[in-house]
Design a protein around this nucleic acid. Structure first.
Length: 700
DNA sequence: GAGCACTGC
């Protein structure tokens, strides 16, 4: 392999900070390496990361793990994989991998890199995301993929042996799959000392990450790479953003945001405004208030647009249309604009300091009044890291301004430095089964970048045990456990799919599984509620929502997958296309697993039994003499109601199972199907004892 | 008769 620093040039300078074996590297100010003359090369050399090229390659060669802290615009994501390739890390049939948390980013980065390298996408440079594998086994040397896909690859190749370097990008986001991946990569490193890791993060939290990867206690052979990770900091290329705080805490961030927008419009030069609020309700209200205020005070030139993921596609696209001359665009957004979408042309950011965050309470205390074992969405303060990210959105085209709707004292003294990793805020059922499938037996002792609570892990193990996926020794059962792990769905849905074989309705249940893994089959939008309700009635099935989905899917197929048909029936065309994609993938996996694909035609009892086999833990009984539709869960007697969007709303069958709960002032069951209670004991005799089911037989 | 931050396989 070639050497990475040029012979005769100065060796990279390394400064030891004497803390935990972590090294900081400081690049010499200029880089004189004259290489490449094309304009593409010149563009590449102008990126901030370029002057660290030698340093990065030096560290990757000498260290098992290198942590790169880089702000946006540093060029690290597109350049580092190319540096590695140029330095020979993809020689001898080996590959360089670079992971991203999101599909769109994978596609965008891969095509950019292919373009810079002057190769056809899918050959030397390729990418893999769910449903799309644009790689070539013989040719691809640099591969971009989502971290979820890399995790799946580990099921076939647990040591990821074809990769010489794996770069995990956006690690600061601490997503569930990034954290699982990091934990597993650390394990792989012990077995494969030649494997190099690059962890790329936007925040200084890098030190925590370095501590995680530091393995000085287990000294390896002296000839291998040094085990202590190095941290290298690469500056970004954003413009400066001036930050303003409120002087005293404000009671109502919605109104404060509205008035801030109006005064920016009054007093500041042209430039678009991005406002971060928490959710659809706040955003729609703010859009209306700003529009009204602007009209009543005859302010001209404001284009106010909402932005959240539930918005119809066409409305989302409005955000990207260029602002007409003399106008000012105001985008009111959830934190979708913090990471997933980048808006160009933003000069002003207004940050409420809040976002909706998922929290999970595994709930073992039976006396607590709040509902447990449910993921909840709660409005909570953001972290400093998020606040900085939001601020940075104002400095992409020229120096900008950021208005924080909280005090500087709050920011400095009270705002947490980092958000809580998703691992510590989620139900871990999927996560645990993935580790089990990779042969990690001691889940409680697994070395996580951020340990989840033992309660959450135990709860996940319990659920998997009750599904028959884990045995008494907490090992995957065969074949059910291995099959459930192989199916890329929530384990309860996967179990439902497996059970459908015995009831002869796998074709129908696979459709239901696909629908349950997307947001909604219905077209979003509150303005057309009445029409949507009427449209739903055309498909409504007495059995419940799952059978209703089958009717929608059937109609969609009979229309020839027509977008026009969807439009007429208030069905979301993009969602239905995704359903057909997921369905195809599931059919392929089912065939590989030897699952018999069979339709039960109109036998909906078979379908309901299969659903019960996966979701028996979500069984509920209507309270006797209940006049307002109060149900109680069988497992823990928690009070729940059927959501008004369900076709079973006000129908209130005696026994139901639900797919999920939305928790507001009440707990609402979403996607509900009526069942016969005897199916519960058939599906999970160990879980339901007969006496629990029939405390009062006369009322059943 | 009510309300869904955001990803991903």
């Amino acid at each position: 392999m070639s050497r990475f620093w040029k012979p005769g040039t100065e060796k990279p300078r390394i400064i030891d900070d004497e803390e935990g074996g972590v090294l900081f590297y400081s690049a010499s100010a200029s880089s004189s390496s004259g290489y490449g003359f094309s304009s593409m090369e010149k563009q590449r050399q102008r990126l901030p990361v370029f002057k660290y090229r030698t340093a990065i390659l030096y560290l990757v060669e000498t260290r098992a793990t290198t942590i790169i802290v880089g702000e946006t615009g540093s060029g690290k994501t597109t350049q580092i994989p190319q540096y590695l390739k140029e330095a020979g890390w993809a020689e001898g049939g080996r590959m360089i991998a670079c992971t991203q948390p999101r599909r769109l980013a994978v596609q965008a980065v891969a095509s950019r890199v292919a373009e810079e390298m002057g190769v056809k996408l899918g050959e030397e440079v390729g990418y893999t995301i769910r449903f799309e594998d644009v790689t070539n086994n013989d040719l691809t040397r640099v591969k971009f993929l989502t971290d979820g896909v890399l995790l799946r690859e580990m099921m076939d190749d647990p040591l990821l042996s074809k990769y010489s370097v794996i770069m995990v990008d956006e690690a600061h986001e601490r997503s569930l799959s990034t954290d699982i991946l990091l934990g597993l990569l650390k394990k792989i490193q012990r077995r494969r000392p030649e494997l190099r890791l690059i962890i790329s993060s936007a925040t200084i939290e890098a030190k925590t990450m370095a501590a995680f990867f530091s393995t000085r206690r287990h000294r390896g052979p002296d000839n291998g790479p040094k085990k202590e990770p190095a941290i290298l900091s690469v500056e970004g290329r954003g413009f400066s953003v001036q930050i303003f705080y409120v002087e005293a805490p404000i009671p109502d961030y919605l109104r404060a945001a509205v008035s801030t927008v109006l005064s920016i419009h009054d007093q500041e030069p042209m430039g678009d405004i991005l406002v971060f609020l928490t959710g659809q309700d706040d955003i729609d209200a703010a859009v209306q208030l700003i529009t009204e205020e602007a009209q009543s005070s005859r302010k001209q030139g404001l284009i106010v647009l909402p932005l959240y993921s539930g918005l119809p596609r066409a409305d989302q696209d409005l955000i990207f249309s260029p602002t007409p001359r003399g106008k000012r665009k105001v985008v009111i957004s959830t934190n979708i604009a913090e990471t997933s979408l980048t808006l160009e042309g933003i000069v002003y950011v207004v940050d409420s300091g809040f976002s909706k965050q998922r929290f999970y309470n595994p709930g073992f205390d039976e006396h607590q009044s709040e509902i447990t074992d449910i993921e909840n969405l709660i409005v909570a303060p953001v972290s400093k890291a998020s606040a900085r990210q939001r601020t940075g959105r104002a400095g992409r085209i020229r120096p900008g301004k950021c208005y924080r709707l909280y005090t500087e004292e709050y920011f400095v003294k009270e705002m947490p430095a980092e958000g809580i990793p998703e691992m510590q805020r989620s139900n871990l059922v999927s996560c645990v089964i993935q580790l089990k499938a990779l042969g990690i037996d001691n889940i409680l002792g697994f070395d996580w970048p951020a340990s989840p609570s033992p309660e959450a892990l135990i709860r996940a193990l319990e659920v998997l045990y009750s599904l028959g996926v884990l045995d008494d020794d907490a090992k995957l059962t065969s074949p059910a456990g291995f099959q459930v792990a192989e199916i890329p769905l929530d384990p309860m849905i996967s179990k439902m799919v497996l059970a459908s074989v015995e009831f002869g309705c796998s074709e129908e249940v696979i459709t239901i599984a696909a629908v349950l893994s997307i947001q909604s089959v219905w077209f979003p939008g509150r303005g057309v509620q009445k029409e949507l309700d009427e449209a739903k009635l055309r498909f409504a099935a007495a059995e419940g929502d799952h059978v209703t989905f089958l009717n929608v899917y059937k109609g969609f197929l009979e229309s020839g997958k027509s977008s026009n048909w969807c439009h007429k029936n208030f069905v979301n065309y993009h969602a239905m296309k995704k359903v057909t994609e997921i369905r195809l993938q599931l059919r392929r996996i089912a065939q590989r697993l030897g699952i018999v694909l069979k339709s039960c035609e109109s036998d909906m009892q078979a379908v309901r039994k299969a659903i019960t086999a996966g979701f028996f833990a979500n069984a509920c009984r209507l309270e006797p003499f209940s006049h307002n539709g109060l149900y109680k869960t069988i497992r823990s007697s928690q009070e729940v109601y059927i959501h008004p969007s369900s076709v079973l709303f006000r129908v209130n069958p005696k026994w139901v199972v639900f797919h999920s709960i939305v928790s507001t002032d009440r707990q609402y069951m979403r996607n509900v199907i009526s069942i016969d209670p005897s199916w519960l004991t058939e599906a999970a005799p160990h879980f339901y004892q007969r006496q629990l089911l029939n405390p009062n037989p006369s009322q059943v």
